[in-house]
Nucleic acid binder design. Sequence first.
RNA 1: CAGCCGGACCGGACGGUCGCUUCCGCCCCUUCGGGCGGUGGGAGAGGAAAGUCCGAACUCCGCAGAGCAGUGUGCCGGAUAACGUCCGGGAGGGCGCCCCGUCCUUGCAUUUUUUGCAAGCUCGGGGAUGACUCGACGGAAAGUGCCACAGAAAACAUACCGCCUCGUGCCGCAAGGCCGCGGUAAGGGUGAAAAGGUGCGGUAAGGGCGCACCGCCGCCGCAGUAAUGCGGCGGGCAGGGCAAACCCCACACGGAGCAAGACCAAAUAGGGAGGGAGUCCCGGCUUCGGCCGGGACACGUGCUGGCUCGGCGCGUCCCACCUCCGGGUAGGUCGCUAGAGCUUCGCAGUAAUGCGUGGCCCAGAGGAAUGACCGUCCUGCCGGAUCACUCCGGCAGACAGAAUUCGGCUUACAGGUCCGGCUGCUAA
Length: 143
Amino acid sequence: MSAIAPKGDTNSSAPGAPKGNGGRFPRSTRLLRHADFERVYRGRRHFSPHMTVFYLRRDQGEGPRVGFTVGRALGGAVERNRMKRRLREAVRQRRQACSVPVDVVINPKKSLLTTEFSQLLEEVGRAFQVIQQKLTEKPRGQG
RNA sequence: CAGCCGGACCGGACGGUCGCUUCCGCCCCUUCGGGCGGUGGGAGAGGAAAGUCCGAACUCCGCAGAGCAGUGUGCCGGAUAACGUCCGGGAGGGCGCCCCGUCCUUGCAUUUUUUGCAAGCUCGGGGAUGACUCGACGGAAAGUGCCACAGAAAACAUACCGCCUCGUGCCGCAAGGCCGCGGUAAGGGUGAAAAGGUGCGGUAAGGGCGCACCGCCGCCGCAGUAAUGCGGCGGGCAGGGCAAACCCCACACGGAGCAAGACCAAAUAGGGAGGGAGUCCCGGCUUCGGCCGGGACACGUGCUGGCUCGGCGCGUCCCACCUCCGGGUAGGUCGCUAGAGCUUCGCAGUAAUGCGUGGCCCAGAGGAAUGACCGUCCUGCCGGAUCACUCCGGCAGACAGAAUUCGGCUUACAGGUCCGGCUGCUAA
């Protein structure tokens, strides 16, 4: 279990990614409360082809907390569950890309159901990079 | 073997890597509550989990009065915790078969026409039968309403054509025709439906006018737990359809639902109860300020299923002030899964099902776990190669996701398995 994980720095290379790509996603790093969702909706947004990502800096802790919203308009229970599960799996594999404390809400579009999983991984990874960049830049520029 | 119909069942299989929820063991931390710490092991969507259409369990609402309104059910018996479900039975409709009458066509016989026979066919009636099939199957001799078009007439029925009697009627040599008063529901025609059907008699022509059989109504007897069936006797016969139109009859129904409900309980805000006294009357006390008890009225307010009535409660201007007590929200815990549970065998029963016995533990989430990726195989389709067996490549594998839990119903569904029946073909 050791050999793969500590790759540490390096930039956005290695899209192929090692096979049994690690990463955990326990419940403590999920966004579960209504109030949290409401707060994040008032924050910043990032748009990508198959989803909209809301995010807002948090005061304590570290790393991202992620929640998903899949409305009734996106399909039946089976389709909505599938979207959430694919997203959760993608986030699990890519959330190390972001280390700042931040709350994230991902709102998928219907097309997410049919995209390749590798494409989804790439998209989620890019979103985390963008969040990391914006939130580390900003404090310097402002003060 | 193929096709069709009916019923039952399955709902891709195996493996790998990385995750999620939950339970158990051990370790670690602990403010001893626990831990959204580690590690090992176990479990983790469906036949419909769906629609939320019925029935229950469970929970709460002061065990819930009367009338009206409302909703549901509707042949009989049984099963069941219960049901609108299931099983069995009874009547009825459909389909197939037979018989009778009838319309038309064809052929044959006879022949001036007529008529008869046979086959097919139209319509109507009757009969027996089925591992077949259908279903809101109480009531239309309580009332109201509706019945398009067609038709003379569509409901205390109707006279268009036709048929028939009659007439000091008219025309005509006559046969007959026309006109008129009537009779008539056999025939034609309309329609989904036209005052039971068929036959014989009777009649001016007709008609339950009379008779026989069938149908209908009533009574009696027998069989059956009953629906009902069979038989006898009597009555010439009441009467269109629609009750999934209102309605009538019988029976049943209190309401809301696990976001039920119980407990713990932040931040913020400040809530409730009592006193601080509506009006009038009566009684008592009085330091003459009032106080206490009872009653009436008024107003406000809560509960009583929707309305009305009725009933049961509570309160009495405002503000300051005094005394006492918490309640609710976010969040958390419980409810929350061992149950009308699943299953083996035996017994009872036609069956639904019940009883006995042995075995089993089978999801419990809560912005909502049950996943992602890969490999091998399976099934189907397409393309290519091959004489062929077969091989290679690609695509597809439905409907659909537990949310308190059960029993049903309904709807959706790729592909497949088994059983039974019918038809066709081949073999025996």
